[in-house]
């Protein structure tokens, strides 16, 4: 069977960047806050609506719409952090209770969206110019290119920020030992809100960039959430590098399956790969890369 290398490469990179964007947020939140944010999908959905409102009322300029989505995402992240992390983080059973609290927020939020905007999907204005170019034998639309470039740039910026800046050090310190972090003067609550805002912003960005795939609707966040969780899980919760490697790997698996077997089997092969990874390394790809929160 002939496999089109260029097509495969383009698909892999596209999927990897999308998955990376979705998984990194969940992964960072888990490692620094010790919380599984099941409301990440809600942030995704509400950011879509934020961008849509901006496009309806202010401007359909791509940058403005994008900014609207990101800002809504940050706001939503901060609210989730304020509701699920701040009151619960020093209570017994925090991990399970925060998981359930974020689930409740997700249920609440998506029903509110349904109530306010109705079940019909909304479309965002195009952010990048239409058209495309040829890359080898594969054609790449500017839309897709924009999504890839945007997410890769953002992920790299994120990595650098985590590595270099004062806030990044703060977050990394909190990932490793919350009490030690408090002892050097890191405020756990403010850092947590900051983390939630940054990851919320990432989700907002993803929502706008992916509005062609996952249209803006009250339940648009469910599938990205599940994908993000699965990729983060395979990467080893809490590791940025692991999440990115897992995103690339699962992107490749998906592209290969779609080309070789057909789109219906994508999830099944992905799952097989993930289960195999987890059976070999229960802490995911990053289990051996670095020590993260237990």
């Amino acid at each position: 069977m002939h496999i089109d290398f260029y097509y495969l490469a383009v698909t892999t990179v596209t999927l990897a960047s999308i998955y990376g964007l979705l998984a990194v947020g969940i992964s960072i939140i888990w490692s620094s806050l010790g919380m599984i944010n099941m409301a990440h999908g809600f942030t995704f959905a509400v950011s879509g609506y934020g961008a849509w409102l901006v496009a309806q009322n202010i401007s359909t300029n791509g940058v403005v719409v994008l900014a609207g989505g990101v800002l809504t995402g940050m706001l939503s992240g901060a609210v989730i952090g304020g509701l699920a992390f701040v009151p619960l983080y020093d209570k017994p059973n925090f991990a399970v209770r925060s998981l359930i609290a974020t689930l409740a927020i997700a249920l609440f939020g998506s029903q509110c969206l349904l109530w306010a905007f109705g079940p019909r999907v909304k479309a965002l204005p195009p952010i990048f110019p239409t058209g495309g170019f040829k890359f080898g034998t594969a054609s790449v639309s500017y839309d897709r290119l924009g999504a890839i470039v945007c997410s890769i740039v953002l992920l790299l910026a994120m990595l650098a920020w985590m590595k270099r800046s004062r806030r990044g050090l703060e977050i990394r310190a909190m990932m490793q030992n919350p009490e030690g972090a408090a002892l050097v003067g890191v405020g756990l609550r403010s850092t947590a809100i900051a983390v939630m805002m940054v990851t919320g912003g990432l989700a907002g960005l993803a929502a706008v960039l992916l509005s062609r795939t996952y249209f803006v609707s009250p339940f648009a966040g469910a599938i990205p959430l599940v994908k993000g969780i699965i990729v983060a899980l395979a990467g080893g919760l809490g590791s940025l590098a692991g999440a990115l490697i897992a995103a690339a790997l699962l992107g490749l698996v998906e592209a290969l399956t779609a080309v070789g077997l057909g789109g219906r089997f994508v999830l099944i092969t992905q799952f097989l790969v993930i289960i195999i990874i987890l059976l070999i390394r229960p802490r995911g790809i990053a289990g051996m890369l670095e020590r993260t929160r237990e």
């Binding site: 998981l99 699965i230 289960i275």
Partner: peptide, 26 residues
């Protein structure tokens, strides 16, 4: 149950969320 032998707590919980989604897609 096979992954449950190796995975613990949250890792398993999240994996099962994915399994449910896999069934839905299928």
């Amino acid at each position: 149950a096979i992954p449950a032998i190796r995975l613990e707590g949250f890792y398993y919980a999240l994996l099962t969320v994915g399994i449910a989604d896999l069934c839905r897609e299928f």
